[in-house]
Simulated assay, not measured.
Amino acid sequence: MTTHSPIKTALVTGASKGLGKEIVRRFASAGINVLATARSVDKLKQLEEEFPNHVIHFPGDISDSNHVKSMVEQVIDSFGRLDFVINNAGLAHFSPVEDLTESQWDEMMNINLKAAFLTCKYAIPHLKKTQGHIVNISSVAGTEAFARGGGYCASKFGMMALSDALTQELKPHYVKVSTLCPGSIQTEFSSNPKSYSLQASDVAESVYQIITAPANMIIGRVIMRPVVPIDFQNKK
């Protein structure tokens, strides 16, 4: 008698556009069930319509604990399990620290860091049951600070620390934690992305490769950078 493995389920934040959208599309194309969350109802509905058998949308503010608890409960109610959490939501305000407003700082901390904390907090009990996997999308800015990026870099450095702590806490439960640090990506996130920036679909493929790596290995931290054409390398 042949037994079939249960269909895996993922929760993807920041799923309405850019990298998050491509992650949802890659997962759903592979037969993974996905709860996609973001603030844009219309764009999430489009994703659900594209993959009606694998995607459900759950719009809202992921920096609000009540929403996050409801979101995780919805995953379990809809699919019966949770295997993968992809903390992808993020935003940036680039400005010298003296010009950065308090609301801009708070917004970055809430979306880039607090939301990941809340999502992990409420997802972990379910991930322990499935020996699941958390993938935190940080940034090269989470490894190297730069001028005008004080708030953004601080939030992404915080994501790295959160990932490191989670790794230590969850290893005994066979829950994996990975952190992906891409450079510039061709998405709406950047107002003027360089022509050679990473493609969102390629970064999404890397996320898929991370979660489907052999069960006996953990891919901890991955830094991705685009190949810079020689003509651009020579420019001062």
Rank of each mutant, 00 (worst) to 15 (best):
T13D: 07
K17V: 10
R26K: 15
F27P: 08
A30W: 04
D42M: 12
H54A: 12
V55E: 06
S65E: 15
V68N: 06
V72D: 06
D77P: 05
S78Q: 15
S78R: 14
F79I: 11
L82N: 05
F84M: 07
F84C: 08
L91V: 08
V97Q: 04
D106V: 02
E107K: 15
M108S: 02
K114Y: 10
A116M: 12
K121T: 04
Y122V: 07
A123E: 03
I124E: 07
I124P: 04
I124H: 02
K128W: 02
K129Q: 15
G132R: 07
G132N: 07
T143P: 05
G149V: 02
A154L: 01
L162A: 00
S163H: 04
D164G: 05
L166G: 01
T167G: 13
T167N: 08
H173L: 09
V175P: 00
K176N: 04
K176I: 06
S178G: 05
G183L: 01
Q186A: 14
T187D: 07
K194C: 03
D202Y: 05
I210Y: 00
I210P: 01
P214Y: 01
N216F: 14
G220D: 12
G220Q: 13
R221Y: 08
I230R: 10
D231H: 14
K236P: 13
